[in-house]
Design a protein around this nucleic acid. Structure first.
Lengths: 163, 163
DNA sequence: AGTATATTATTCATTTCTGAATTATCAATG
DNA sequence: CATTGATAATTCAGAAATGAATAATATACT
């Protein structure tokens, strides 16, 4: 599942037909796609026994990391990398499950405050060990130095992605 | 759209509450998620005028890079990182659009051969300039050396991801 | 104050994806 | 050659995500 050689071979074929196709950027994009899909699938598998999926896990963790365990839907969208329409759906479901609560914001009445409930916090404590294991597994081939280096490079890549 | 500082802040909060949460792996995973989502959105936007989405683009490019412009559905699933059920749907649609063709495989009658049609090849030639531009834009902050380094590290991360 | 512009969140129809069967073929073994 | 177990592709129902439109509130400007 992790043999990247065929991808390289395909890229060579592509470049023979279309020499302007930039090898390194294309490899990077394909690698990131493959890694993301694995991360996504594995997170889904780990979270399933807890009754959640990857997206819901992310929403909860963004709130867990927020001051006061509270964010607005649009902050949550940015933090979790979800479209706002999707955040509405996900948070509505999480509300129904009792893990987060919705409240109007006093300062700006357009805004909505989404907060973890005690049940949500309890759930997080319950699944975090599995996630920690998963994170270690997903990075186990990289030394601490390599992780730091990779972090630097990915941040650089992300810089100004939207312009 | 590319300010990663809030993510780091959230991670610090998380680690104060739950010290075992591994900082570097979590950052890497979140970075990859963010970059992938950007890549996905931008590819969707670029391909839309051509009547395709990111997934369909990928399917076509995997065939473009294959010997004889032909792959089986399961090869395609591995190459494009899509679930096989999804490959069936995507390729059926691409067949209906006339960009690829389905044929039974002679050697093994369980297999199906999916090939680019001349129309498919023509379409690819037509959209590739836009994709090349996009790929350069997405990696423009990285030097050639950095791209090579990043490639090495991502490959290392991907190694044995599935075990 | 009144009007135009921007932001926030949601809704809705549609598209896209997933996981769990199901069907068909192949390969190996007794 | 009959049976068992793997592999390939598809189907299907349900889940998840998207883009475009809407409603409500806020901000800036004249």
């Amino acid at each position: 599942m992790s043999d990247f050689a065929p991808t390289e071979a395909r890229l060579d074929v592509t470049r023979r037909k279309y020499p302007a196709f930039p090898r390194a950027p294309a490899v990077l994009v394909r690698l990131i796609k493959h890694i993301y899909k694995e991360i996504h699938d594995q997170a889904n598998a780990v979270m399933r026994p807890h009754g959640l999926n990857h997206a819901e896990y992310n929403i909860l963790m963004m709130l867990y990391g927020a001051p006061d365990n509270t964010l607005t839907p649009s902050e949550l969208a940015g933090a979790a990398g979800e479209k706002s329409a999707n955040v509405t759906r996900l948070t509505t479901e999480l509300c129904e499950m009792g893990y987060i609560a919705r409240a109007g914001s006093e300062g700006d009445r357009r805004k909505v405050a989404l907060s973890l409930t005690p049940e949500g916090l309890e759930l997080i404590d319950h699944f975090l060990p599995d996630i920690v294991t998963l994170l270690h597994r997903q990075t186990r081939h990289l030394s601490a130095a390599e992780q730091a280096q990779l972090e630097t490079l990915l941040k650089k890549m992300l810089t100004g992605f939207g312009e």
